[in-house]
Design a protein around this nucleic acid. Sequence first.
DNA 1: ATGACGTCCTGCCTGC
DNA 2: TGCAGGCAGGACGTCA
Length: 291
Amino acid sequence: MPELPEVETIKRELQPLIINQRIKDCKILRKDIIGYPSPERFCRGLINETIQDVIRRAKYLIIVLSNGKRLIFHLRLSGRIIVMDEEKDLPLKCLESEFKKTQFSEKFEFARLIIKLENKYLIFSEPRALGRVYLIKEDEKPDVLKGFYNLSYEPLSPEYDFNYFKNKIRNRKAMIKSVLLDQSICAGVGNIYSDEALFHSGIRPTRRANTLKIEEIFKLFLAIKDVLRKGIDEFGTTVSDYKRTDGKSGNFQNFLCVYDREGKPCKKCGKEIIVKKIGNRSTRYCPECQK
DNA sequence: ATGACGTCCTGCCTGC
DNA sequence: TGCAGGCAGGACGTCA
């Protein structure tokens, strides 16, 4: 599941591949992944634009186009962005049938959107079809992107300082795990990095946020930044779906202490890592190290 | 405003 | 072997 470090990795890998490329064509293979505007307006608005930059905001990947337009991807659980060098200069309507039974079939199995650039294809693949793509003009703020406009500061930016974090969480009565998943509090943090940050700060995920002591809030604040930075350094976490643009896996799964480790011994104390549903989300923690 | 919970979606895994 | 059912999970809608 692509969280901040995974999307950051994809962004970095995408930049040298697609910046300055002009969009020649666009084919939507599944209409409901287009979050805004209509599929027809989406394609029309994309063609002939030039890619100026690739940036990231929380878990959103943003392709900045000429004329201030933005192509925004949310990968949700299983979305992938694949760049494929152009083998043949095919019109997009022939592309699928041409490639379906070839060595590229894997890349097209769950393709929901194919964007044809000057000498490559940008493929948005999403088995679970929960991911979304939006195209917005400079002055547009569609309701479907409400969450995007309510994000907190970037957790790795200087503005995301201890005071900001403390003020956001200290009056919350919900369990700290749920609070960390709130994108208006911890933009870009998802299930993996929230569990890991709680482990490293020794806090049990079921604790109510407003019961955390100041020292604990500080430990948690540092741990969030640490796991995110480390996640980026290791090219993200691959446990099931996430792959980099070239199909390679990330490395951070090798450093996980609790996530995906239920039933295994804690790396610190040896006790069994347990899993518990918190707010409909599986949450892993060490009952010994996290109080 | 906040918190708890249901819904979306579909591949994959488990169990009978 | 095959099929049903549950699970994964980010964001958002609904309700109290």
